[in-house]
Every structure is written in structure tokens, then in C-alpha cells.
């Protein structure tokens, strides 16, 4: 069964995005929320790993409200901005939700 992973910390100060990417399988989805959205920017320490995951078929999302709230971020290509409604939909689509914080 697949898992939805949420990450809410900046990878510039915390390793939870890194750990999440280590365990995220190709069937899983990754949603960046709160300060986690900094992880999806072009200079993120995890940028290469995220690109690789997207290549492998992992769906990567960032919460739109959290992204807009934080200014003109250069979000990596392939990351889809979604709203709260989509967040709920994703949590229905996956059996489990693991929150990395």
C-alpha cells in the first residue's frame, strides 16, 4: 500500500526531508507543507534527490497557501502546487500518512 509523506521543516536546518526521501517509494506521494516548502526550491539541499524521485514517478506536491505565504520562491519543476482540498484528497488516496517533522 502507498503512503503520503508530509514534511514541514526546512531542509536547510532539519534532516526530515532527507529521511523522508530515503524511505519514499515510487508508489508514494510527497507533500511539502509549512516550512517544508523551502525543501522544494531550486537551491534546496535535497533538490537533486527530489528531481530523481520525480523521475522515478513519485508525485511531489507543495501546499499552495504555504508557498505563497513565503514569497517569490523558485519552486522546482515537476512539483505541483495544491490546496487544502487536494491535501485531503491525497490523504484519501494513500493508505497511510507519515508526518515528518
Amino acid at each position: 500500500m502507498s503512503t503520503l509523506h508530509t514534511v514541514n521543516k526546512s531542509p536547510f536546518t532539519d534532516n526530515c526531508l532527507h529521511s523522508c526521501l530515503l524511505l519514499c517509494t515510487n508508489e508514494d506521494a510527497l507533500l511539502l507543507i509549512e516550512d517544508g516548502v523551502y525543501g522544494g526550491t531550486s537551491q534546496s539541499p535535497c533538490a537533486e534527490d527530489i528531481r530523481a524521485k520525480i523521475q522515478l514517478g513519485v508525485s511531489v506536491y507543495a501546499l499552495k497557501q504555504d508557498t505563497l505565504a513565503r514569497g517569490e520562491l523558485q519552486v522546482l519543476e515537476g512539483i505541483t502546487l495544491i490546496d487544502d482540498k487536494d491535501f485531503v484528497r491525497l490523504s484519501c488516496e494513500h493508505q497511510c500518512i507519515q508526518s515528518w517533522y
Binding site: 507543507i33 509549512e34 504555504d66 490546496d83 487544502d84 485531503v88 484528497r89 484519501c92
Partner: peptide, 30 residues
């Protein structure tokens, strides 16, 4: 859904994210 909230209001963004999630879930009939 069962929702677990570990963040305090105003101290942590998690608290308001949880509130928004709960609202969105209810709006969609969950």
C-alpha cells in the same frame, strides 16, 4: 479521519494547518 494535533496555537504552524485540513475534510463530506 482521526486527526492528531501536536502543535500549539501561535507557536507552531502545525496548529493552523490542522485547522485548515479539518475544514477542508468536512467541506468535502468526510
Amino acid at each position: 479521519f482521526t486527526v492528531v494535533v501536536l502543535g500549539a496555537p501561535y507557536s507552531s504552524a502545525a496548529n493552523s494547518t490542522a485547522l485548515r485540513f479539518c475544514r477542508a475534510a468536512l467541506e468535502q463530506g468526510h
